[in-house]
Write a protein that binds this DNA or RNA. Sequence first.
DNA 1: ATGCCGTGGAAACCACGA
Length: 258
Amino acid sequence: MKIATYNVNGINGHLAILLRWLSETAPDVVCLQELKAPQEKFPEEAVKEAGYHAIWHGQKSWNGVAILARNAPPKEIRRGLPGDEEDVHSRYIEAMVNGIVIGCLYLPNGNPAPGPKFDYKLRWMERLTEHAAGLLKSGKPVVLTGDYNVMPTEKDVYKPERWVDDALFRPEVRAAFHNLVEQGWTDALRKLYPDETIYTFWDYFRNAYGRNAGLRIDHFLLSPQLEKKLTAAGVDKLVRGWEKSSDHAPVWIELAGK
DNA sequence: ATGCCGTGGAAACCACGA
């Protein structure tokens, strides 16, 4: 089973890219972030014609997450992270797909740091960590994937020294990510490629993609029973080079079994 | 060191992203 995640940076603005990528790579399950569309503006028909059932949590202008699945509709478990009734951002949706719990997340950017947005990011990471602990405890197979807006280590950023004060790389954020993984999760791409340079995002300007000045911020965290089933993983880097692309590239894993 | 590009929404600019 192939599971992919893709920050589309506006699902309607980049719909042609999304559809082309779906038809060329045909993942079984797809997590999308940054829909930037209200609930009623999700391109349900186009996604259906591409062969996917979908559930989504939209929001006007910003954020927005979705889970797509080929064979049967994802069975929604929850939308939104627990722990803050005041948080109205559409940043998390969770569903059962083919017997696996799929958590699709769009973690807050957090800039500028310090500041209220950075505080919100740290609180959101605490809530995610608490929720993730419950998922592990359930004993179910779980994939937590999406745009984490965190470079976990210096290997994951083209010029680490330039990013130390940025909300995506500050020590508190790296520590929070590390703390989450240490619960017992496996960073799928790093497990298969411990020393490779892997990026999933390239800025639109300064020819960042051409210079390979990238960041690895989209991640797959696997629960222990899924770690054993991991057979392949990668980044569809070429998609980032397509005209009118998102600033992220799709990331995917392959799990043994149907 | 930097939002230099890009999207969405509202209003011909602004918020936001990483």
